[in-house]
């Protein structure tokens, strides 16, 4: 017994160190495993409101660029409106449509904190559970895909950006619907790589990459980027594709969070399938 006490007395620094280290590993592991991230919900409020107050000052420096991008987006949206089209028919019938039902709705948000040079980058936005945002929703900007919502507090949400080792976004080539997975290798924030595209699929530079119809997070056809370079190693089954991302993460200010209204239904159905097997 005395030896035991002596042992604790002699190594108390190590024991303290050991338990604290254990604690941080548990927190880290839990966070990596479950995207619930209770730690972030606990502390997220503090850091987010800190960044919000910093951001409210620094936002003024970028107002011109924000205005330009919003104007450009307005212009494209306007060109899609009904009154931008020439009416070629003579009669116009209005049907209470049961064929088309809204599947996706969009929530706009401002970026309050962002990074691009870390291995795993996160973005904080100023909308949260109060505005209907939930974990695992897709996020896009006016140019292209941004990332996936990880955790949500009342007024804020954190997004795992596409520039993160754990983010995998299901994508496809626009011209032939060959699908692959968009993963970032941590090198350059302007480029990402598209993996698991089969080698028999023909690829040329400047092919457009868009989100695929397999994803429940994004609507089909949201632009992601362009093929910048591609190669095929001998004996390998998949292309190595470097994608030039449309989204400029370093100047990101406004984003849209996508709410998929049918997502639960689809996932319950697919869950049943797995359970049945």
């Amino acid at each position: 017994m005395r030896n035991l006490i002596f042992f604790f007395y002699k190594y108390y620094t190590f024991i303290l160190f050991f338990f604290l280290e254990l604690f941080s590993f548990v927190v880290l592991y839990q966070y990596n495993n479950y995207q619930k991230a209770s730690f972030l919900n606990f502390t997220g409020g503090i850091s987010s409101s800190f960044y919000e107050s910093i951001n409210s000052t620094t936002n003024y420096f970028g107002l011109r660029n924000i205005n330009d991008s919003l104007l450009a987006e307005n212009a494209t949206l306007r060109s899609q409106m009904m009154n931008a089209y020439y009416q070629s028919g003579t009669t116009q019938t209005s049907i209470n449509d049961t064929v088309y039902k809204q599947q996706y709705s969009y929530i706009s948000a401002n970026v309050v904190n962002n990074s691009v040079t870390k291995r795993n980058n996160y973005i904080t936005i100023d909308k949260g559970a109060m505005h209907g945002i939930e974990p695992d929703m897709g996020v896009i900007s006016s140019n292209g895909v941004v990332g996936i919502v990880t955790s949500v507090s009342l007024h804020f949400a954190t997004i795992r950006s596409a520039l993160n080792g754990n983010t995998k976004i299901s994508c496809m080539l626009k011209k032939n619907n060959a699908f692959g997975s968009l993963e970032w290798n941590g090198d350059d924030p302007k480029f990402s790589s598209l993996k698991y595209v089969n080698k028999h699929v023909p690829i040329t530079s400047n092919d457009e990459v868009v989100t695929s119809n397999y994803s429940t997070l994004f609507p089909e056809g949201i632009p992601v980027g362009q093929v910048y370079a591609h190669s095929l190693d001998a004996g390998d089954n998949f292309h190595v594709i470097k994608v030039n991302l449309y989204t400029d993460f370093s100047t990101l200010k406004n984003v849209y969070v996508i709410k998929n209204i049918f997502k639960d239904e689809q996932q319950i159905l697919e869950g049943n399938l797995k359970g049945g097997n």
Partner: peptide, 20 residues
């Protein structure tokens, strides 16, 4: 640092190790 960089446990483990 973890609180402000959305990385629970990461900086804590590394800085603790260094402090030891």
């Amino acid at each position: 640092m973890d609180t402000f960089s959305s990385t629970p446990g990461l900086h804590m483990a590394a800085t603790g190790f260094m402090g030891y």
